[in-house]
Write a protein that binds this DNA or RNA. Structure first.
Lengths: 223, 223
DNA sequence: ATTGCAATAATGTCAGACAATCTGGTTGAC
DNA sequence: GTCAACCAGATTGTCTGACATTATTGCAAT
């Protein structure tokens, strides 16, 4: 018998649906940074009541995906470069650690999964679909994080990456970024496949630093 | 003129007050781990309406301070040792980094502040007041985190420490833990005062590992 | 152009309601 | 006597509607 199978089916509540929808909307840039979210509008668009919406907004606020100023309401924060830098730095810390641990403990099945996701990114990278690139790249990381053996590390990392989702889309559309990203990711994969802890950390650090540089470039050029 | 002074006064809303009150209540053990929180009870106790309460609960849920199972409502999670371990591991990662950065960049004024908080802990450690010990120790860390130059690091760390607040109270009441904690903290302080990056990291890592061991002991003995 | 003010919009908060779901105890069958 | 089915109360999920307080905007006046 599987020891940790979660039998409890959890019915999806309106609040959960709403949080997911809004989060996705923010990721995909439906709400531009700095734009305000009007409760009454969202209610009618989503077809839900104001209390339900407000609960969802509080969740997103705690995730730092939106800001809520008293008596002004919610808005999508415009991330400054200082904040983004701070996030990238912590992300580096976590991601490097995760890659190192992952190299030591990933299962063969998950390793194949990782390889598959790398292929998916490779395919996306050769296309011009930057949305697909971001998504497949996210899959790649999430497999690494899911196999680092520390769910808290994974969870914190996910929260941070969510907050810079805006940059990820932008920087992927930079000339050549997808290609070099692919090379870096392949390097990470090779290191993990070789069970080489040190190399995985090194490659992972390089990747984050390059991603950060690309994001900075994208921001400065206002792509 | 100060560049980043936040002029905006933010009126404290019912939701904010409620979140703070409930968070404090959880920290101080008013709600035991595993216990359920009944909305109607909380409403009358806090003197607020159900929508306001539910918004506050969603915030706390996103902070992982409470769990909300659909149709069963909110409860204080009973942290397993595996989860606690995961948190301590990430905390180590963040805290070590913060101590190292802090050593390189803390201002003299803040350094004096750090020394003062160490003295406060020293005083608390010689008393039997474990609540005071936890509080003064928290001050010490928060000064380090506030001076590491990365607000995101600080924020994530605060979130993690909040989730293991239960253990901190327990382990501080272990025989001799406060004393040895004081020694470890003094070591960290000395390293930071000496601007010794490496030593600060080393001392900080040792401290977290010892705190983790103490928490494990406290848990196993059910103190 | 700037200031002041009124009208409008939006938020913060509450009260009450109702269906769906969970919980605990009782009843009934074996 | 034990176990399953069931029913009543408790609790949550969600909605509607309301109202005071606080921003925002447009216009008038200086």
């Amino acid at each position: 018998m599987q020891p940790d199978l979660n039998l409890r089916i959890s019915p999806r509540t309106v609040q959960q649906e709403t949080v997911d929808k809004l989060r996705l909307a923010i990721f995909s840039g439906v709400f531009l940074p700095g734009s305000r979210l009007i409760e009454s509008q969202l209610c009618s668009q989503l077809g839900i009541s104001r209390p339900s919406l407000r609960e969802a907004l509080r969740s997103l606020q705690a995730e730092r995906l939106i800001e809520i100023v008293p008596n002004r309401g919610p808005s999508v924060p415009a991330l400054s470069w200082e904040e983004a830098t701070a996030i990238y730095e912590v992300r580096e810390l976590l991601e490097v650690e995760a890659a190192g641990r992952c190299a030591a403990r990933i299962s063969p099945a998950q390793l194949r999964e990782l390889e598959r996701s790398l292929s998916a990114f490779e395919e996306a990278a050769s296309s011009k679909d930057s949305a697909a690139q971001v998504m497949t790249a996210a899959d790649f990381y999430s497999i690494i994080l899911a196999n680092c053996g520390n769910p808290v590390l994974e969870e914190v990392h996910r929260g941070l990456v969510a907050r810079i989702s805006f940059f990820r889309g932008r920087s992927m559309s930079l000339e050549g970024r997808a290609k070099s990203s692919l090379l870096e990711m392949r390097e990470i994969f090779e290191a993990i496949a070789a069970r080489d802890d040190k190399a995985a950390r090194k490659a992972s650090r390089k990747h984050v630093l390059k991603a950060k540089a690309a994001a900075k470039l994208a921001m400065e050029n206002g792509i």
